[in-house]
Protein backbone atom coordinates (compact mmCIF):
# COMPACT_ATOMS: atom_id res chain seq x y z
CA UNK A 1 0.00 0.00 0.00
CA UNK A 2 2.66 2.42 1.05
CA UNK A 3 4.72 1.34 -1.92
CA UNK A 4 1.87 2.03 -4.26
CA UNK A 5 1.44 5.51 -2.85
CA UNK A 6 5.10 6.21 -3.15
CA UNK A 7 4.99 5.37 -6.80
CA UNK A 8 2.17 7.82 -7.30
CA UNK A 9 4.11 10.44 -5.42
CA UNK A 10 7.15 10.12 -7.63
CA UNK A 11 5.49 11.16 -10.83
CA UNK A 12 2.15 12.52 -9.79
CA UNK A 13 -0.61 10.36 -11.14
CA UNK A 14 -2.56 13.22 -12.64
CA UNK A 15 -1.44 15.49 -15.41
CA UNK A 16 -3.36 17.84 -17.63
CA UNK A 17 -2.31 15.86 -20.70
CA UNK A 18 -3.56 12.55 -19.38
CA UNK A 19 -7.08 13.68 -18.77
CA UNK A 20 -9.86 14.64 -21.04
CA UNK A 21 -10.64 18.22 -20.17
CA UNK A 22 -13.88 18.50 -22.08
CA UNK A 23 -16.18 18.27 -19.10
CA UNK A 24 -14.10 20.85 -17.30
CA UNK A 25 -14.49 23.48 -19.99
CA UNK A 26 -17.94 22.70 -21.34
CA UNK A 27 -21.36 22.44 -19.80
CA UNK A 28 -21.61 25.86 -18.19
CA UNK A 29 -24.55 26.05 -15.79
CA UNK A 30 -27.12 28.85 -15.95
CA UNK A 31 -26.12 31.94 -14.01
CA UNK A 32 -27.82 31.71 -10.64
CA UNK A 33 -28.88 34.25 -8.07
CA UNK A 34 -26.38 32.81 -5.58
CA UNK A 35 -23.60 33.77 -7.97
CA UNK A 36 -24.95 37.31 -8.26
CA UNK A 37 -25.02 37.44 -4.49
CA UNK A 38 -21.47 36.12 -4.24
CA UNK A 39 -20.05 38.51 -6.84
CA UNK A 40 -21.91 41.60 -5.66
CA UNK A 41 -21.25 40.72 -2.02
CA UNK A 42 -17.56 40.43 -2.72
CA UNK A 43 -17.45 43.82 -4.48
CA UNK A 44 -19.37 45.45 -1.63
CA UNK A 45 -16.99 43.90 0.90
CA UNK A 46 -14.11 45.28 -1.18
CA UNK A 47 -15.55 48.80 -1.09
CA UNK A 48 -16.08 48.62 2.66
CA UNK A 49 -12.54 47.30 3.17
CA UNK A 50 -11.22 50.03 0.89
CA UNK A 51 -12.94 52.83 2.79
CA UNK A 52 -11.94 51.51 6.21
CA UNK A 53 -8.43 50.77 4.97
CA UNK A 54 -7.95 54.22 3.48
CA UNK A 55 -9.03 55.81 6.76
CA UNK A 56 -6.98 53.56 9.04
CA UNK A 57 -3.80 52.93 7.08
CA UNK A 58 -1.39 55.80 7.75
CA UNK A 59 0.32 55.52 4.37
CA UNK A 60 -2.84 55.70 2.25
CA UNK A 61 -3.28 58.70 -0.02
CA UNK A 62 -5.90 60.14 2.35
CA UNK A 63 -3.14 60.90 4.86
Amino acid sequence: MAEEKKEISGTGSLTGEALEAEDVLAGAEEWSSTETWLVVGSFIAAIIALVIGMILVPTSILH
Partner: peptide, 10 residues
Protein backbone atom coordinates in the same frame (compact mmCIF):
# COMPACT_ATOMS: atom_id res chain seq x y z
CA UNK B 1 -7.54 14.03 0.73
CA UNK B 2 -4.52 11.89 -0.04
CA UNK B 3 -1.89 14.44 -0.93
CA UNK B 4 0.32 11.88 -2.56
CA UNK B 5 -2.21 11.72 -5.38
CA UNK B 6 -1.53 15.35 -6.26
CA UNK B 7 1.37 15.68 -8.73
CA UNK B 8 4.57 16.27 -6.86
CA UNK B 9 5.47 19.51 -8.64
CA UNK B 10 2.21 21.03 -7.45
Amino acid sequence: YDNYAIPQWI
